[in-house]
Design a protein around this nucleic acid. Sequence first.
DNA 1: CGGTCGCTCGCAAACGATTGCGGTACTTGT
DNA 2: ACAAGTACCGCAATCGTTTGCGAGCGACCG
Lengths: 326, 326
Amino acid sequence: MMPGARDVARLAGVSVSTVSRALRLPELVSASTRERVVAAASELGYQPDPTAQGLRLGRTQTLGLLVPDLANPFFATITKAVHTTAQQAGYAVVVADTDEDEQAELALVATLRARTDGLVLASPRLPDAVLLEAIEGSPTVVTNRQVPGVPSLTADDANGAGQALSHLHALGHRHIALAWGPASSYSGARRLAGLRARAETYGDVELTDLGTFTPSYAGGFQAGDHVVASAATAVLAFNDLMALGILKRLGERGVRVPDDVSLIGCDDVVTAAIVTPALTTIHIPQDRLGSRAVDRLIALLRGTGTAEPTTVLPGQLVIRASTRAL
Amino acid sequence: MMPGARDVARLAGVSVSTVSRALRLPELVSASTRERVVAAASELGYQPDPTAQGLRLGRTQTLGLLVPDLANPFFATITKAVHTTAQQAGYAVVVADTDEDEQAELALVATLRARTDGLVLASPRLPDAVLLEAIEGSPTVVTNRQVPGVPSLTADDANGAGQALSHLHALGHRHIALAWGPASSYSGARRLAGLRARAETYGDVELTDLGTFTPSYAGGFQAGDHVVASAATAVLAFNDLMALGILKRLGERGVRVPDDVSLIGCDDVVTAAIVTPALTTIHIPQDRLGSRAVDRLIALLRGTGTAEPTTVLPGQLVIRASTRAL
DNA sequence: CGGTCGCTCGCAAACGATTGCGGTACTTGT
DNA sequence: ACAAGTACCGCAATCGTTTGCGAGCGACCG
């Protein structure tokens, strides 16, 4: 099987202690034996067993990442960013997909924290109290969410949504439908608040809620029919995925975007720029969310956590072809 | 911090050994103490430290998943499937993204195998010999690839590609361009072989190779210009992602799909069905690839590995709107 | 030449769980 | 009442690595 420190020790004619020291604290061992050990180690292809190291040192050099849906390109991109920067810092990443299910989330947090040094929770759905209880003691960073006392990375949801509404208002839209997602979504709620606030300042726009759907392509498909049933001239979707589903379904039902109704998504997933009409959407810096979350988490682990606990990245409306003036 | 077996033992008034036995081998301990232990354990919320268990038992209840690109929805879907079925079987999943880089792949395999019980390698790019050497001793299943001696799950690449070529041929296309991906891709090579073989049987079709590109949206974008420069009436792309890039670029350059050129992708990513024109593509059962890979791997770990080492899933051409008769 | 210091390195105890082995106490049979 | 058997539980070793502590040894100083 895999060579152990014992094998290296035997080959180099030293004790296991010396092997360990030669590799981790080179200044504590003489130059000659050090190179004997290093030679023996590389000859055998020795690498210390992470499990044993983990037990002894109390850290596993592993980070946990929890997402609501790995197949959602938004989270897939975050996952990639998390892995990349974690990898560079010498950490492995174990992922978990909650499938938007709160109970699953709770259970997964428990198993994750047991085998990792720290957690990145992307868009967690659990209520504050439960979440805080669940992560008690594990260094944690959340994204797309703010939880009191927990370092968080969010996009400027309310502002981005406000921009979207202003955009539609400027185009002359006054009756706007909302195809929304899970009520437990923090960023969703923030965006909703941003929308309502902005609508309030205008005073002349009517927001009608089409209901809540699964924040997926299929969910948007469902929502599409509700859109045609409504009298709205524009739709704001919870998600790019939902927006895409709506787009498709509207096409099938013979209503044209943007000629008949304008459509705005959120996230700026790759696909949003590909489809025709290209989707007007709120851009969220997914990679930066992921990579900076890891940076923050590692800072926490090193005890060099920053004073400012919650940082918000700008969210920016990007106008493409799915919105048009009335 | 987290409660240990010692804490449970103290609370239940027994020894650590008994705690362990009461939870893992209930028949070896009397009913009364068993329930005392269980009560104490659940009161403290005790769960055995996976690291310590891993060291003692020699297994970590963790699987490793290696993919070329997490952000590619094809692999994102596989990742989700892998996580789901692994999770059900009580395994955690640590992921690694090679970014299509062979050296990175080699290094990541090494770190993965050290902390996992087994590996799922999705579309590994390393040459057979290197790969075999790298995974020597670790239970491994590969997908989208066949490696001698290693259980593998593949789609019927050659056949799927053949179907695609026949489809184009039936539509009257005789000059077909190939926008291909990494030469190290096994399934890519298999599809290429299937194409050439089928072209051979027709005898009257010309296959021109546009070159190799990064198998991503951006890569396809690049390839798009080569397409317009060629005289081909149809293009086969390595990838749906590439096909989407080509589609977009062609649109920008003023050549219409499918009126001016027909376009076929591969994988049947969600987006393929969403764009207009909807992409004709070769469907690959991504979830089944992922979930069955895990099934096979777990069977290996349990020592119940099947006799038949390599199973090939059907690949099916799905005809949509990006191909048309000349 | 003896004592002290510094440099290397080995011994052994952790880390937290699992498990073979053996001891204790209780039951059962005669 | 005593022997044999059984059921239950604790002791201690173990997994592979790290690290405090101290031993050995040579050098240097007085």
